[in-house]
Structure formats: C-alpha cells, structure tokens
Design a protein around this nucleic acid. Structure first.
Lengths: 411, 411
DNA sequence: CTGAAAGCGCTTACAG
DNA sequence: CTGAAAGCGCTTACAG
C-alpha cells in the first residue's frame, strides 16, 4: 500500500525490493524486478528470455531461468495485458436466470403463477437452472479451443429481465479481448455499438457488418424432423413449444416447421400460449396451462429444445397422457440427458461442442487479425430418432431418417 | 502500435487523443483521457466521479457522466487492476479431461482399453465429459456469489494426467485475485507454495495453515446411506466404486462406509479393481471388468458419485443384471439427473450450489481481509432414498431415512 | 546482446 | 473541490 520513497520502478536493478521484498517469502508475489535483481540483469532481459525474443546470450538465459524458477515468478497478467494490449481472455455471456428458484416465466404468465409451482410438482426442476444446459456444453467447447491458444474464459450470466444488460456486457468486454454472446442478449443497436469496440461473435441470428455468427443448421434439422413426423408418422396436428420469443433459433425452427406443416396440410399450433423459455420448468407451466384450458392437444409437441421437451413430458406423464402413444414429443439439441429419458427423446442433434470451438476460433482470428475471419458459419444438424416421436426403440420405425422408407403409419 | 511522440499520458488533458482518437468511433475504445477531454476536466476528476470518491462538485459530476455516456466509456480492467491491485476475478480450477473422447481411465486399466469402449456400447457416454457434472453446478454457485461482488469467474481445466498442473494453475493465479480448487489438483507442496502468494480455497480435503476448505459432510451422509443399506435393507455384501484414488472425498466416503460395514459384520469390496474416476464411462469399464472377471457381485454397489452410478447401472442393465432386484446401486451428490434415471437413483444430497457460494464468500473475505475468514466449513448432507437401493417408489421402503423404522427386510 | 526509458490506462496521495 | 504527478508491473523500440 505504501508507496516507496523513490518508486522502485524506473530504477531497474536499483529497486531493492519492488514488491515488499523484506520477507523473502512474503505475501506479495515476486515481480520482474525481483527476478532481475536475483539474476543480476535488467528487467528488459528478463522479459526477453521469458518471451523468447531476440536470442539472449545462453548465460543470461540461464541466470534468468534459474531466478524465475527459484522465485516461482509468473508475470502479472494485468501489467502484461496493459502493455501488450492483449488479455488472453475471452468473455462469454449466457442468458439465464441467476437467482435460484424458478426461471423467469413467459411474459404472459401472471406474476405469482410460479408460487404454485411447488404444488404442481415442479420441484422436480427446482435446481434445473443449476443443471447441464446447452450453454454449458458450448462453453466447454470454447474452453477447449481457447486453451490451445493460452486463453481463458470469463463467464457471465445476464438475466433475461436485466434491463441493464448492455452495461453488464460492456463491463465484461473491458475484461476481455473478445466476446461470445449466447442467444440474444443485446438489442441490435447495443450489439452494434459494442462490436465496434471489440470483436464479437454471436451464437444465434445473423452476422452483422461488425460481428460474426456461428450457428447450426436449424432449417435442415427441423425439416428432417418435421417430415419424419408428418410423413413417416403421419401426424396431422402439431404444436410448437418455443423458446424465448425473441430467440433467433426458436424463430428459425418455428419458421421451418410451419412451412413444412403447411406443405403437408397439417395444423400447427404456436403463438403466445405456446411460448416457453428454453427451460423445463417454463415448458411445464405452458403445458400445464394448455391442459387446463381444455384445448385438445395436438398429436405431437415439437419443442424448441430438449430441456423444454423434458418439462413437457414430465407434465404429460403426471397428467396421465401417454408419450408417445397419445401425444408424441420431440426436442432439439440432443443434450446427453436426451437418451436417458423415458421414452428416449427424439431430437435434432447439433454439434454442440464444435459450435463452441468454432466460435472461439473465429473470434481468435478476429482478435489476432491473422486472417480475415469467416463471418457466417453454419454447422450441420441431423435428426436423431429415438422413442418419443412414436418410433419404437429397436422397432419398426426406430432410426428412420429416410423419408421414403415408411409412410402414413398412423399409430 | 506506434508510440505517440511525447506520450499522451502524463500530459493529462493535453493528450489530444490518447487512444487513436482520430476517427471518433474508431476501433479503439475510449480511454479516461478521452472522457476528461470531452468533459473539460482532469483524468483525476473523471476517476473520482466514476468511483464515487470525495464528493465532486455536482457540475463536474454531470459533465463527466455525460461524457462517459456519450463515449460509452468503461474503464479498462487491466489498467485498473494494475493500479488498485485487484482484478475482480476469481480463478477456478477443475480437474477433468480436456480432450474429447473417453476420460482418463483408472491407472490399472491397460493402455488401449478405451479403444474398445465403442464396442462395449459406451458411446452412450462419449460426450459425458461435455455433460453436466457436479463441478459445473458448484461453479454456478460460485458465479452467483461472485456476481454480487462484481467478480467474474475464470475457469480452467487441468487434466488429471497433467504433470505440469502446477504451472498452469500458477498462470491462472496471476490472472485472478484468488483461486478455488476442485478436488485435488495440486500436490501438497505445490498447494503450499501457491497459497502463500494468493488466497486459495480447496473444495476437498482439509484446510492447511494457508488455505481454507469448504466441503460437505461426507461422514454423516455416507453413514446414513450405509445404515440404510445395511439395516433397512439388510444387505451383507457391498462394493465401493471409488473416484480418483487420491480424491479426499472419495477416500472419506470409503472410510465411513468401511467402518459401518465392519460394525454391521458385512463384507465390503473395494481397492484397485474398484477404482473409478468419477465418470460414468470409467465406472462402466470397472463394472465391465468386474463382470468379466467372474467374481460374484456384491448385493449393492455404493458409488463415489452419481455419475459413476450412472455408468454402473448402464452396464448392469446391458448385462441383464436387474437393478435393484439383483444388485442395488447408489450414488452421491444428487445431481439433477439422479431423479430422472430409471430406477431413480438413491443418493446422498450435497448442497451443491451452496458449496460454490460459500467457497466464494470465504475466498472473498480472504481477498478483502475484511474479517478473518472461516477456514474450515462443512455443509450438511442428507440421504435421499429413491428406487435404486431397493426401495420402491411410493412403496414400503420409499423415503425411509429412519434407521429404526424397518429392519432386515431382505428382498 | 543488453540496459535505460517510455508507455500501456488507470487510481490516489499530495498540493493547491 | 480539483489538477499534476507518481506509481502499479510489464513490454518494446531506441541506443549503445
């Protein structure tokens, strides 16, 4: 805390103990001045051998390395970052409720509705916000790729209800060299402003003039799923249980589904009453209300993601509705839990980890400016048929992905 | 890149455009000099209103705030960190295989054993390292607590086989104000050296003179589980499928289990052949080999954690062994997936998120030195009886946690 | 090859 | 209340 009389900085080796040196193994970590003094060289030399610049003399190198090892010296990242203008940190923003307890409900759910969640048995999902989600798996991919470049991940959640998301994201930005944004966490103009200051990758939507986007092929995956349901199973009534209303992925999936349904002459339910929030608990409430409203259910409920499907199946089962005999259910993502559900979940697989790795690589190329970055990347998806769509595990329709193979097999 | 002729630094408002100012909305984010110039004050004043120090004059405050808003200024964290010696970042080290593919097997598993994993159907766990784990849930808790203090999380994985773990952890340390270490990622002497340079919390084991530990009550939880199995169910042969051999938690759980088994006169199998690695895939291989070896299985397999139980149950089922009729299986942790398994997993619940929140709070008090930190914290655990132990869901033994209620009910 | 010095963008005693 | 200046711990032209 106390500033040294003459400063121990510009003086080089003259600085006797730049970092509270008195105690030897004192609290403060050693600085480059300590190393320089111990090695009997200048801090410039220390820096050079540490960074492998300009072939230092072998002897110099040795002395420095010995001193470094002896003192357990590791350069302070803040000082280095300030100097080279590179933090080696990538910020990730995830959109999720931070508070414990139930996730934020769809806007149309009256306040207080969640108070009764326990009564409805949604305790089952009480800690769901704690559980594995798509986001986490993507982040793991980012971490893998980042590690190869010596980068670390700074992860921050923003609440969906957070009106000050812009500020919070900006704050994260100043701790990072670049940002990866999940789903839609910023308004277009905020995104625009941010991306002019720092490289930004989005994981949903479209690239902008100043951002790149990495996503997966919603259309192809959803199309395969839709056709499987419409033609292989011959379902004629469908419901789409969406994610956040403003989620680009959710919107894209709905669009494709709607187009396919239309083409097949099937009926598709969607809209406000069908809007979830990507969480099982949210989907559970939606399903619950649907059931309570007395509207007849469609033959199949297509969910925006696997988590939602989990919630739907949970409520249906509790209400005595057989899945998939009476109502089929499908997901999107193919998170690991999907295959452990009963019935096993039919879904569309995204290359989740790869999504994260790719996002990092693109971001890295923007940060390093080594090569012009690809600005719009779409990764492939594919239909994974399991049981919840009505296929029987190991049975007739199991594994069918080919439209022509089976038709109009109405259970 | 190019250094300004006279530097734009010590000159205060004389610095014309400290950060490449030419373009206005140029690439580089605005610095405090830009704000000062725009507001017509000194950088010191800007800093003061930003940090709410020493009541600036209202007019000054206004001008600064206006300039800040206009420029979208956010202080650079590296510069601030260097100045105040606080990064507002907490590092978390998780022990897990970084590479895709199967987790590192127990030491006794011959190299190459994993190559056949696919043949054995462990594809089911191929992306398990991507999936939710105990670690992730703990980290989520840390994040919640950290957010309240304006801290962010820097997460790094170290591979179990990483011999250079010490260096990698140290590198993370220099990017953080304090560290939280999962499981056992460092040798005692490394831990010792590290913790003298920076506050460190461990999440397993014992506090040392320079570190604090936050853990949960392994003994009480395991004791309740053991007694339930031994007395309520009357099992007389048990196996303990462990985590990493050097994991303090795994060891503690085994110790309690062994003591209880001894007291009940039951037989407990454990040791090298029973050593897993906290992953489902690892546990699956162990179970597979046990089966292949021809040794008769114990009546119940007590697993070091839920993930392991998942792997055990998977292999048993595939081998035609009924769970829990022929072999009961239990876990530890109570991760969300536990209740979605079939049969639902009997396990010991840890307050996972709370573990993380507590770890952060303790770390924070060490960092801020506000108050002497509690150095040894143990959170409560409790037995969660579901089906996999042999209780029937909703049936006779369901929910039994009281030792005296039912005895020697041998299925 | 190596050292002295400037600079990265902040904060904070120290004087007004 | 406010400004000039020093300092945080590094890196890197710039001279030798």
């Amino acid at each position: 805390m106390t500033v040294l009389a003459d400063g121990g900085q510009a003086a080089g080796r003259a600085a006797p103990g730049a970092a509270g040196g008195q105690g030897g193994d004192s609290a403060a970590p050693p600085t480059i001045y300590d190393v320089a003094r111990a090695a009997g060289v200048s801090i410039a030399s220390v820096s050079r051998v540490l960074n492998g610049r300009r072939n230092p003399r072998p002897e110099t190198r040795d002395r420095v390395q010995r001193a470094v090892a002896e003192l357990g010296f590791v350069p302070d990242s803040a000082a280095r970052a300030l100097s080279v203008r590179l933090k080696e940190v990538v910020g990730i923003v995830v959109r999720r409720p931070l508070s414990a307890g139930p996730p934020v409900p769809a806007p149309w759910v009256p306040a207080g509705a969640w108070d009764t969640a326990g009564l409805l048995g949604y305790d089952a999902f009480a800690d769901e916000t704690e559980s594995l989600q798509f986001h986490d798996m993507v982040n793991r991919g980012v971490e893998r790729a980042a590690q190869r470049r010596g980068f670390d991940l700074l992860i921050r959640s923003v609440d969906i209800t957070d009106h000050d998301a812009g500020r919070r994201v900006l704050a994260l930005a100043r701790k990072s060299d670049g940002l990866i944004l999940h789903d839609r966490v910023l308004e277009p103009d905020q995104l625009d402003q941010l991306s002019r200051q720092i490289p930004v990758i989005t994981l949903a939507g479209e690239p902008t003039p100043t951002t790149a986007n990495v996503g997966s092929d919603n259309a192809t995956g959803m199309r395969a799923l839709a056709r499987h349901l419409l033609y292989d199973h011959g379902y004629t009534t469908l419901g789409y249980l969406g994610g956040y209303g403003d989620s680009p992925d959710s919107q894209a999936r709905l669009e494709t589904l709607a187009a396919e349904a239309r083409a097949a002459g099937a009926v598709l339910f969607s809209g406000p009453q069908w809007q979830g929030n990507y969480y099982a608990a949210g989907a559970a409430v939606v399903t619950e209300r649907l059931l309570a409203s007395g509207t007849p259910l469609p033959r199949v409920i297509v969910c925006a993601n696997d988590q939602s499907a989990l919630g739907v199946m949970y409520v249906l089962r509790r209400s005595g509705v057989d899945v998939p005999e009476q109502v089929a259910v499908t997901g999107f993502d193919d998170i690991p839990m999907a295959r452990h559900l009963h019935p096993q979940l039919t879904t569309v697989r995204q290359p989740i980890g790869e999504l994260g790795e790719t996002a990092f690589e693109v971001l890295y190329s923007m940060i390093s400016r080594e090569q012009p970055a690809e600005r719009d990347i779409t990764l492939p998806t594919r239909l994974i048929c399991r049981e919840s769509c009505g296929c029987q595990s190991g049975g007739k329709l199991a594994g069918v992905t080919d439209l022509s193979s089976v038709r109009h097999l109405r259970p």
